[in-house]
Simulated scan of single mutants.
Amino acid sequence: MPIVETYTPAGTPTPIGPYSHISKTGQFISISGTPGVDPATGEMAGPDAYSQARQIMRNFVTMLESVGSDLAHVLHVNVFLKEVGDFAEMNRAFAEAMGDHRPARTVIAVADLPKAGALMTMNLTAVTRD
C-alpha cells in the first residue's frame, strides 16, 4: 500500500486548522486550499484580488519546490472566489505565474472563506518532475 506523506514546508503560511499544506504519494501531489497570506507577516498580501492571487501562486511555487515539482507540473487548480467580479484580476495573476502552461481549472464563487480578509483560496493537484 502506498505511503501518504504530509508536509508544511518552511517559508509557507501556518495552516489555520489541523491539516498540512501538502499530501504526496509517489509522484502525485495535492496542495490544500491556500489563501493569499504572506508567510513573512502572516497577513493577507493585499486587499485586492490581484495581490492575493499573486501571493497564492508564490506560495504554490514554494510548496511545489519542497516536494520536487513546479508550476509546469500542475494538473488541476480549483479557485474559490468570494466575488465573481474578482475573476479578471485573479486570472491576470494566474496567467502571469503559469506562463504558457495551461492546466485544467475550475472557478467557483463561494459565500465566505475561513481566513479573515481572504478574497479567494486555491488548491491544486500536481505531479513531481520525475
Rank of each mutant, 00 (worst) to 15 (best):
I3W: 08
I3M: 08
I3A: 08
V4R: 09
E5F: 06
T6F: 07
Y7N: 06
Y7Q: 02
T8F: 01
T8Q: 01
P9E: 04
G11N: 10
G11Q: 06
G11S: 04
G11C: 04
P13F: 05
P15S: 04
I16Y: 04
G17F: 06
G17K: 09
G17H: 05
P18A: 15
Y19F: 07
S20H: 15
H21T: 05
H21K: 07
I22P: 12
S23V: 14
S23K: 14
S23E: 14
K24L: 10
G26E: 05
G26V: 05
G26R: 08
Q27G: 14
F28L: 12
S30Y: 02
S30P: 06
S30I: 08
I31W: 03
G33D: 08
T34H: 04
P35E: 09
P35G: 10
G36A: 03
G36F: 04
P39M: 07
T41C: 06
E43P: 05
E43G: 07
A45F: 03
A45D: 01
P47F: 04
A49G: 07
Y50C: 01
Q52V: 01
Q52D: 03
Q52W: 02
R54E: 03
R54M: 06
I56A: 05
I56C: 03
M57K: 04
R58Q: 02
N59G: 04
V61A: 09
V61Q: 12
T62V: 11
T62P: 07
T62L: 02
M63E: 13
M63C: 10
E65D: 15
E65P: 06
S66Q: 13
V67I: 11
S69N: 15
L71V: 15
L71H: 15
A72C: 15
H73R: 15
V74Q: 13
L75S: 15
H76R: 11
V77Y: 11
V77Q: 13
V77G: 14
V77T: 15
N78W: 09
N78K: 12
N78G: 12
V79C: 15
F80G: 11
F80C: 12
F80L: 10
L81S: 08
E83C: 06
E83A: 13
E83G: 10
E83K: 12
E83V: 07
E83M: 09
V84C: 10
G85M: 00
G85F: 05
D86L: 06
D86G: 03
D86S: 10
D86M: 00
D86Y: 03
F87G: 09
E89L: 04
E89D: 14
E89N: 05
N91I: 09
R92E: 11
E96D: 11
A97M: 00
A97R: 00
D100H: 08
R102E: 12
P103F: 01
P103V: 12
A104G: 14
A104R: 14
R105F: 12
T106V: 12
T106Y: 05
I108Q: 15
I108W: 12
A109P: 08
A109I: 03
V110E: 04
A111W: 08
A111L: 12
D112T: 14
D112E: 10
L113G: 07
L113M: 00
L113D: 01
L113E: 05
P114F: 01
P114S: 03
K115V: 02
K115H: 02
K115I: 06
A116Q: 09
A118F: 01
L119T: 02
M120L: 09
T121I: 03
M122F: 02
M122H: 00
N123K: 00
N123A: 00
N123Y: 01
L124N: 13
T125G: 06
A126S: 11
